[in-house]
């Protein structure tokens, strides 16, 4: 396994950049969503802080891959973000569903309108990615007892599952008013399956299928950006009332997750 350089950067540098990008989009989403709730709990600042820390640490680690201190910093930031995500998940479940009027009996309502239940796990995923990246930058070939590409493929599969679940809930809330809203449920689901396949029983067929599906997932993400912007414009007042429609319309950063998770798979596949 020889790392392949791409556009002058080594694969784990790319992963560090992807980590930063993911954390950035998640942080923006948390900022917007928590602002919508007027930062009613102090904990709502946590993902903004740890997300920003992860962005900075990942960019530094990408820029100076040979500095062990920065590598260590990325690892710490990764653990911090991962922990924040887990706590956030508990908070989203408890304050976003359990303690709401009607509580768990209204779970279907609060999955749609309470705090987005899987969103904090996105931050956890970004954190884990940071940790994996830190190990990779340190020249290790395995992480959590798995060889690098396998670890990445499994990571992609799990991360995609979360993104698909959250997109599924919110697109259901939007009544799939545009058929394109099914795209992030179908293509990435297949990519997820192919990812597990590649991790457990790699073969040429699995590799080809996974590659195609990852590229398609990447495309879904890019198209998603455009569609979400269009969705914002379809709200009352459109871009003129962007300051409310940013809060009420489709989450503008969310499709970025599909791009990030797919890109990780592609890095694992082509560069490692």
């Amino acid at each position: 396994m020889t790392p392949i350089e791409f556009l002058g950067l080594y694969p784990f540098q790319w992963l560090a950049i992807i980590t930063a990008g993911t954390a950035f989009f998640l942080m923006i989403d948390a900022l917007v969503g928590h602002y919508r709730r007027a930062f009613a709990y102090r904990m709502q600042y946590a993902p903004v802080v740890t997300g920003t820390a992860l962005v900075v640490a990942a960019l530094l680690a990408a820029g100076f891959p040979d500095l062990p201190l920065l590598n260590q910093l990325l690892s710490w930031a990764g653990w911090l973000a991962a922990a924040t995500g887990l706590v956030g998940f508990a908070y989203h479940f408890y304050y976003g569903i359990v303690t709401k009027p009607g509580g768990l009996k209204w779970i279907l309502h609060y999955l749609m309108y309470g705090a987005p239940i899987f969103a904090p796990l996105g931050l956890t995923a970004a954190g884990v990615l940071g940790i994996i990246t830190a190990h990779g930058l340190a020249g290790e070939h395995a992480v959590f007892g798995l060889v690098m590409p396998i670890a990445l493929f499994l990571f992609v599969a799990i991360a995609l599952a979360g993104a698909i679940a959250q997109a599924g809930i919110l697109h259901y809330r939007g009544a799939f008013n545009n058929p394109a809203m099914y795209a992030p449920l179908t293509v990435p689901s297949l990519a997820m399956i192919a990812g597990v396949w590649m991790a457990l029983a790699p073969s040429t067929v699995a590799r080809a299928a996974f590659a195609v599906l990852l590229w398609m997932t990447l495309l879904v993400g890019f198209i998603g950006f455009g569609m979400h912007l269009r969705g914002l414009d379809r709200e009352m007042g459109g871009l003129y009332l962007w300051h409310v429609n940013l809060l009420e319309g489709p989450p503008q950063g969310a499709p970025g997750l599909f791009i990030a998770w797919a890109a990780i798979g592609l890095v694992g596949m082509y560069l490692l």
Binding site: R37, A38, M236, G237, L241, V244, L247
Partner: peptide, 13 residues
């Protein structure tokens, strides 16, 4: 009109 409201819950302003 046309701007509506975002924070429609209790104490939401």
């Amino acid at each position: 009109s046309p701007r509506g409201h975002v924070r429609i819950w209790e104490n939401g302003l």
